[in-house]
């Protein structure tokens, strides 16, 4: 079949119905007294899309992430999420129980410090199994097998399943956090500096693993990072923040290769070449 034939066939078949956004953020603002955490942030996120929020420390990116993920109540603005039944729900108008269930099942959160995302004094297998139990799994054997399967997907040996994460290296702990989050097959995962504080070789392994999982599972991800290389590797789109405001947004390679805003140009030109 020639290219023009392919185009005609596609046109004849009709353009597929547009997919609706998974998450819609509208005018999100959080102020701390007189200080701005983040101001008037709006964007849509579609299923399977990876969005990076970049900026220096204090730019408001973590405040924004916490407001979107319902961990911090915004001063104003709305966050709408498309539930599995297709209905759009305002996450700040949901009942507390419903929101908690959403966070435990359909959402994941990977923290920079694994101590915030793991329970250090229970086994690796229990860390993964806990989220399964939260969604109603009760069969010990099944939970353990699923946990082992997920540990191997994040390249943790089966014989570490009964060890506590405090005995794990930094890279392993991050991989365990990822397994713990993905085991319930969420559709949206938030990540706050997931590779922060890791050695570069460990970082590369984690990024490669994340890239693979994101594309295999069709996950939508919002990742906060100050590392532009991480943004380039993982994300489709990015938002650049400064002093709580979005100063540039667009396709990741467009923003990095043709930065427009003075601050983005400063960030890009500050990367050390190796």
């Amino acid at each position: 079949m020639s290219h023009s034939d392919t185009l005609e066939a596609l046109a004849a078949a009709g353009i597929p119905a547009p997919v609706k956004p998974l998450l819609s953020v509208e005018g999100l603002t959080r102020v701390y007294g007189k200080r701005i955490g983040c101001a008037d942030v709006s964007f849509d996120l579609w299923p399977g899309e990876v969005l990076a929020i970049v900026g220096e420390s204090g730019s408001g990116k973590t405040t924004l992430l916490n407001c979107i993920s319902s961990r911090l109540t915004p001063t104003c603005g709305t966050v709408h999420y498309r539930m599995r039944d297709g209905a759009s729900a305002d996450i700040y108008k949901m009942a507390e129980a419903e929101r908690r269930y959403l966070m435990r099942t359909d959402w994941g959160f990977v923290h920079q410090n694994s101590i915030d995302g793991l329970r250090m004094t229970v086994s690796a297998g229990a860390n993964v199994g806990e989220r399964l139990m939260a969604v109603g799994n009760r069969h010990y054997g099944n939970i353990r097998n699923t946990a082992i399967e997920w540990l191997s997907r994040v390249e943790i040996d089966e014989d570490r399943v009964d060890d506590q994460p405090r005995t794990f290296s930094g890279g392993m702990r991050q991989r365990l956090q990822i397994a713990r989050n993905l085991v319930t097959e969420p559709r949206l995962v938030f990540m706050d500096e997931p590779t922060g504080g890791l050695d570069v070789s460990v970082q590369a392994r984690l990024l490669d693993l994340l890239r693979g999982l994101v594309s295999d599972l069709g996950l939508a991800v919002i990742v906060v990072t100050h590392d532009l290389a991480v943004a380039r590797l993982l994300s489709d789109r990015m938002i650049v923040m400064k002093e709580g405001r979005v100063i540039e947004a667009g396709l990741t390679d467009r923003v990095l290769d043709d930065p427009r805003a003075p601050y983005t140009q400063l960030l890009v030109s500050s990367i050390l070449q190796v």
Binding site: L7, E8, L10, A11, A12, I15, G250, L251, D253, R254, D257, D258, R260
Partner: peptide, 17 residues
């Protein structure tokens, strides 16, 4: 689409439109 443009159009035949 890797660089932005100041003005002008780049029309592409994409899925028949």
């Amino acid at each position: 689409g890797n660089y932005g443009t100041d003005s002008g159009q780049i029309l592409v035949q994409h899925h028949g439109r």
